[in-house]
Amino acid sequence: MTKARALIIGAGPAGLMAAEALTGAGHRVIIADAMPTPARKFLMAGKSGLNLTKVQPDDVFFGQFAGPDMPDFAPFGFGPQQATAWAEGLGQQMFTGSTGRVFPVGMKASPLLRAWLARLRQAGADLRSRWRWTGLEGGFRFATPQGESLLRPDVTVLALGGASWPRLGSDAAWVPMLRDAGVQIAPFRPANMGFRVAWSAPMQKVIGQAMKGVAIRAGDRVSRGEWVISHAGIEGGGVYEVAAAIRDGAVALVDLAPDLDHDRLAQRFARPRGRLSLGNWLRRVLGDPVKVALLLEWGRPLPGSADGWATRAKALPLRHDGPMALDRAISSAGGVAWSAVTPDLELRALPGVFAAGEMLDWEAPTGGYLLTGCLALGRHAGRAAARLLQH
């Protein structure tokens, strides 16, 4: 049995930010993580360019966050400006793209993570890899390379992630332990996921190609981002932005020409087809063979007039067979219910134990929202834990 005043379980962004808050208050912490190396999902997110946050007013930015009984994230005091300043404080030069998204100049997560871990170690954080939390009997039990270990900290922050990307560590193995301890857990559901589509044979020629210059409308949400036609269905940022609404039953419509109003598009469809095949004629009108393929796939029965073609192209039904599986989702909804934690994120059933990050029941689109949200929650839980230690 090892005595430690502060324990963090989970070495992702929320856990490391909690550790930073605790070490910043002068407390030494143990960070236990089941994986061989820390922050694997964070590093995976950085493979295509680490989108840390998005420059928007706080009310607009945090308006993208959703969850049953979820509090407003803005009072946590960590939004786009704070996230950018934090990364710059780690020696990372940041830039803002044309869409407001903020990235490191090097477009990688690894330099930021290395600097972060070095600062945490210098401040008194002890990172223990391959430490898998196994139970709460008599304290926090772990299976480690050296055998079983038992910790009895004064405060603990749980930051074990949700249920997406289990191979990177977010496997929700903590659910039975907390549920048995009396913590209310909402069922996990995929978030920021694609949708399954059983494509017809003619669609095979556009598999792997990107859908650009379109809009998806689902409920009160509209996405103009790119997405991809994959073997399994539709995936990518443009789908993820409206995925929650579609998952929850909203009818989704694709606008293949969002920069043209109905009348101007109808004029294009009114041009004589002549001896052109249907596909070639549609390519002349829409200018993109991927759009044409999708219109022929989802637009049947095909219209018989220019006005009908314009109506169909401006509101093409997005036909799908349901969301892709949880283990393929970018993130998850569900987890520790907000009613199960205090405003300080302390578990009501386990005094002195806090929850942060994707363990809690909230979701947000990709594009910087998820990362900033995890950092905000980790910081908030870590600061609350530090205050408890001072009492």
Rank of each mutant, 00 (worst) to 15 (best):
R247Q: 09
L151Y: 12
G225P: 00
E226T: 03
R284G: 14
H231K: 13
L16G: 06
A87G: 04
G10M: 03
G46S: 10
Q146H: 12
V214D: 01
D180V: 01
A325L: 07
A340G: 00
K314A: 08
L389A: 10
G100W: 13
D126E: 15
T366E: 02
A355T: 02
A245F: 10
A115F: 02
L168A: 14
T366F: 08
A215T: 09
M193T: 15
G10H: 01
F354Q: 02
W133S: 01
A340R: 03
T2A: 04
T37C: 06
A333D: 00
V102E: 08
V290T: 14
V183E: 09
R273W: 05
A293E: 13
R179V: 01
I330R: 00
K108A: 09
P38E: 09
Q209P: 00
D255F: 06
R264Y: 05
H391G: 15
S170G: 07
S331E: 00
A87N: 03
K314E: 11
E363S: 11
P68Y: 07
F76M: 14
L294C: 11
R121I: 01
G139H: 11
A356F: 00
G322P: 00
F61R: 13
I8N: 01
G147T: 11
E363P: 00
A109E: 00
M203H: 06
G287M: 07
V251K: 12
H27A: 15
L253W: 07
V336D: 01
V206N: 05
D327L: 00
A173Y: 12
P111T: 07
V183A: 06
S98M: 07
V353L: 05
T53K: 10
W298C: 02
F269V: 10
P289Y: 14
E148V: 11
L113T: 12
D154E: 15
L265V: 11
A85K: 14
S129L: 14
R217E: 06
R217I: 03
G373P: 01
